[in-house]
């Protein structure tokens, strides 16, 4: 009985592994196929030879590298501003007593109840009035602060023992140094988790950039890919090559920072 259960277990694991990984291999395989191989029926699993024409073709057909660096700009600025704001506000909430503290705390919690998908019209109006429609700043701005990030940083500061800050104050640290030099380094694991989650989320973000970006030279990768899908409907190979290029950074970040993902899911599973 136990042996039977064991082999069923491995059967499941193998099956799930195939389902999880196969779509990636299919994408990779399509990106190396020749024109005549894509629409073969039955479909061909592997290209007859590794063919890099599609990568050259897509880079010549659309400004893919431009999309890549636009995306990188959006991702890095979103991470930078988010981390800065969350660590400032999280520190204030964790370490100070002030008037209306509960109201400020409620504002943060309430902001977490508002799905961004619903408020795109007012966001568009605000960004329009700032003259930032069709700019990368316009993509970043509404996502520059997130309630859950502030909340996460507050928890991180709360978990630091009070003695550390009392010792620093006795040693003559001013408030800014206390925050920046003494406490912030201790929250590094939470900061890392925040950086990675923001990276993955922003890299794949779609609906807002789709709404705000109009001209091709400002597209992010995801908007560019969806646009490409419309233009090259039947050129799977080009779209596949573009998708592989857009996918590599997330895969690299994921494999190099795995342990922070797990920590993030456990602390942030309420998100």
């Amino acid at each position: 009985m136990k042996k039977k259960l064991g082999s069923i277990k491995y059967l499941f694991l193998i099956l799930f592994s195939i389902v999880a990984v196969f779509p990636f291999l299919w994408l990779l395989s399509t990106s190396f196929k020749g024109a005549e191989e894509v629409f073969l029926f039955p479909p061909k699993l592997f290209p007859s030879k590794i063919n890099t024409d599609n990568y050259i073709g897509i880079v010549n057909a659309i400004p893919l590298w431009r999309y890549f660096f636009n995306t990188l700009f959006v991702v890095i600025s979103t991470i930078g501003v988010n981390v800065l704001i969350a660590s400032l506000t999280g520190f204030a909430l964790a370490r100070f007593n002030f008037k209306f503290k509960n109201i400020f705390f409620m504002i943060i919690l309430a902001s977490m109840l508002v799905p961004k998908e619903i408020i795109v019209i007012p966001l568009y109006r605000t960004v329009l009035s700032l003259g930032l429609v069709d700019t990368l700043f316009g993509v970043v701005l509404p996502f520059a602060a997130e309630g859950f990030a502030i909340f996460m940083m507050r928890q991180a500061f709360l978990s630091i023992p009070k003695d550390i800050e009392e010792a620093a104050i006795i040693d003559g640290a001013n408030l800014f140094n206390l925050w920046f030099k003494v406490l912030l380094p201790i929250t590094k694991p939470t900061l890392a988790t925040l950086v990675i989650f923001t990276f993955i989320g922003t890299w794949g973000d779609f609906i807002w950039p789709l709404i705000i970006l109009k001209s091709s030279e400002n597209f992010t990768l995801q908007v560019g890919l969806s646009y490409m899908l419309g233009t090259f409907v039947n050129n799977y190979r080009y779209v596949a090559a573009g998708s592989v290029i857009a996918l590599i950074p997330v895969i690299v970040v994921f494999f190099s920072m795995q342990k922070y993902f797990i920590k993030g899911i456990i602390t942030g599973s309420g998100k």
């Binding site: 400032l88 506000t89 100070f96 002030f98 504002i107 966001l123 605000t126 996502f143 502030i150």
Partner: peptide, 29 residues
Amino acid sequence: MKNKAVYFFLLPGIIFLVIFALLPMIQIF
């Protein structure tokens, strides 16, 4: 701690959340 400097730490986050989450939701209504 009690200190006026708290608002320097607190306000950037609060202002962003009000402008880009709470007011928009009220506007939607």
